[in-house]
Design a protein around this nucleic acid. Structure first.
Length: 426
RNA sequence: GUGAUUGUAGCUCAGCUGGUUAGAGCGCCAGGUUGUGGCCCUGGAGGUCGGGGGUUCGAGUCCCCUCAUUCACCCCA
């Protein structure tokens, strides 16, 4: 074991994997532009209260998973962001961007931090891409956000992802339902497990999420949220489903889908994959009309958004073999020098090639010709350009095609022309 | 936070009931070809056997502690 290791739950991404990230990020950026979402970058830390208010103090994230610290002895507590929505909303309110344009469509690809035990598909530092649509509260807005997300999956070539969707109703609906749940579960107190008992008081909806097999029977008999939705909520939900169907987006209605964050209302959704192990959620989101008020806004700001776990997305793509064709970009030319005394010439030539836009690599370590050739081969270069006694004397250099093994000796200007020809791969 | 799992070379792993200088494949470096790679051949470098303690004549192998990994629970992306 080396003396220093990456912090628990944090990992390094080396060049080959970084290429995969760039590929995925490229698709996200391109589709965001297509859908009219603009990138926002917010600080990695915020005042702790923001998350306590925004995410909800009863949630696990706030209760036990935040990296919080106090930089100044008597100063305010600061927290490494465990999710993006609260920060984005804070930024929007702080600058009052809705004052200049009443609808804001924002997206991000950002690093998040949660103090959990790492396991497959879960790290302490991880990243999400996501979108937030602020200022509109229509089924069309929710459908737009979901469609954007699903098209990213589609464009990346993902198959077999499952979209589950539910309506949580408005505040009134949820209040009535909450009481109904408490009434239903209270007689079962003896049988409930500790976390469920706690939820019974704080947030009974989340009992429905329980995976405890012993509780399944009780849970399945619980009142359905769906039966407590008023017509407005039902119409809203139907409309969202209508848009999705019309666009050919498959979904499963799941009346037990609740989601862990307090701020969701009306539509909530989640996308799961089968290749991820226990942590099978790739992304999720919903509508959160109440968040802005929670954060001190004097007016209502309806909003909808989603977040997708980049690591889980990449993991699923890997399992589905979607990266096989992706390789690091190879240099076109490797400059090989016969003896070290030609280093200066080699550096000049290398520079000229690069200046003309040709991806060029050269030996910086003074290694043997054989090593240089092996290196050229390892890097999958298409050409080797030799600098030796003859070349220096005549000013004509030897270019070898490493695939066909053909080589010719010509002035550098001429070689650069050849290298720029499409057949050369440039 | 709880449970289980694994920890031997850069990587993937051997190492029988504890017994001489700890191995293989791949990778890396060098040479075979002092102006030419991929294949092949030869050689080489590289290991506090995660760390500490204990049992023993003797520990990579057994025991304890510790650190780390991985997976699962909880919850979530």
């Amino acid at each position: 074991m080396p003396q220093y290791q990456a912090v628990k739950g944090a990992r390094d991404i080396f060049p080959e994997e970084a290429a995969r990230w760039k590929h995925v990020e490229g698709v996200v950026h391109a589709l965001a532009a297509l859908y009219g979402f603009n990138e926002i970058r917010t600080p990695v830390f915020e005042y702790t209260e923001l998350f306590q208010r925004g995410i909800g103090s009863t949630t696990d994230i706030v209760g036990k998973e935040m990296f919080s610290f106090q930089p100044d002895p008597n100063g305010r507590s600061i927290t490494l962001r465990p999710e993006m929505t609260a920060g984005v909303m804070r930024a929007a309110l702080q600058k009052n961007i809705l004052g200049t344009a009443p609808v804001q469509k924002l997206y991000y690809i950002s690093e998040l931090f949660r103090k959990e035990r790492p396991q497959a598909g879960r790290q302490r530092q991880f990243s999400q891409f996501g979108a937030e649509l602020l200022g509109v509260s229509s089924p069309a807005a929710v459908a737009e956000v979901i469609t954007f997300m699903m098209q990213v999956f589609d464009s990346l070539g993902l198959r077999g992802l499952r979209l589950r969707i539910n309506s949580l109703g408005g505040t009134h609906d949820r209040l009535r339902y909450r009481e109904a749940l408490q009434a239903y579960f209270s007689p079962y107190r003896q049988k409930l497990d500790t976390p469920s008992l706690e939820r019974l008081e704080k947030n009974p909806l989340r009992i429905l999420d329980s995976k405890n097999p012993d509780l399944q029977e009780i849970v399945s008999g619980a009142p359905k949220l769906y039966d407590y939705l008023d017509t407005e909520a039902l119409d809203d939900f139907d409309k969202v489903l209508f848009y999705l169907s019309e666009r050919g987006i498959a979904f499963d209605i799941d009346h037990r889908l609740v989601r862990g964050l307090d701020y969701y209302c009306y539509t909530a959704f989640e996308v799961t994959g089968t290749e991820l192990g226990a942590q099978d959620a790739v992304g999720g989101g919903g509508r959160y009309d109440g968040l802005a008020r929670e954060l001190g806004s004097s007016s209502d700001i309806p909003a909808a958004g989603f977040a997708v776990g980049m690591e889980r997305l990449l993991m699923t793509m890997e399992k589905q073999g979607l990266f096989t064709a992706l390789k690091l970009q190879a240099p076109l030319v490797y400059v090989v020098l016969q003896q070290q005394e030609y280093t200066d010439v080699a550096m000049q030539v290398t520079f000229r090639l690069r200046k003309s836009g040709i991806r060029t690599e050269a030996d910086l370590a003074g290694r043997s010709m054989k090593s240089q050739m092996r290196e050229a081969n390892r890097l999958r270069c298409s050409f080797a350009l030799f600098i030796g006694e003859n070349e220096v004397a005549t000013g004509q250099y030897t270019l070898k095609n490493l695939v066909t093994s053909e080589q010719s000796t010509l002035p550098l200007d001429r070689l650069i022309e050849i290298l720029h020809e499409p057949a050369s791969g440039e």
